[in-house]
Amino acid sequence: MLKIRLTRMGAKKNPFYRIVVIDSRAARNGVPADTLGWYDPAKVDAPVQLDAEKALHWLNVGAQPTDTVRSILKKNGILAQFADAKK
């Protein structure tokens, strides 16, 4: 099964994450099928850059987001778009 999850990047004690689509059995920093964007929790307001079109594509294919990524998608309105498209 494919998962949409975070891959840790950045220096020690200064995390930076990429939002990737990867096989659920792969390692955290394994080779992803696709990169959707990034998330930087260290900065004020935790900026997120996300390709909504790619995210919707992978959700339609059946990729399951983790809890953290699900909250990021919800804040950016992508889950609402996905729910509207399913109706």
Rank of each mutant, 00 (worst) to 15 (best):
K54M: 14
D51C: 14
V44K: 15
V31A: 03
N29A: 08
V48C: 02
G37P: 05
D45A: 08
G30F: 04
K54D: 12
V31M: 06
D45M: 13
Q49V: 11
K43C: 10
W38R: 13
L36W: 00
E53W: 08
V31L: 01
A27W: 11
A26T: 05
V48E: 00
V44T: 13
R25F: 07
L50Y: 01
G30L: 11
Q49Y: 12
D51G: 09
N29I: 01
Y39G: 00
L36F: 01
E53I: 13
N29D: 12
L36S: 01
D34V: 03
A46I: 09
N29Y: 12
P47A: 10
A27G: 09
S24K: 15
A42D: 13
A46M: 09
A26M: 11
V48M: 12
A46H: 13
T35G: 02
E53T: 07
D40G: 02
L50K: 04
P47T: 11
T35W: 04
V44N: 15
D45K: 12
P32I: 02
Q49D: 13
V48Q: 01
P41T: 06
D34G: 11
G30D: 08
D34C: 14
P47L: 08
D40P: 02
T35R: 04
A52I: 10
P47M: 09
K54P: 12
D40Y: 03
A52T: 11
D51I: 02
D34I: 08
A26P: 05
E53D: 11
G30N: 07
G37R: 00
K54F: 14
P41L: 10
S24M: 09
L50E: 08
P41R: 07
Y39T: 04
Q49S: 14
W38A: 06
K43M: 11
K54N: 14
D34M: 13
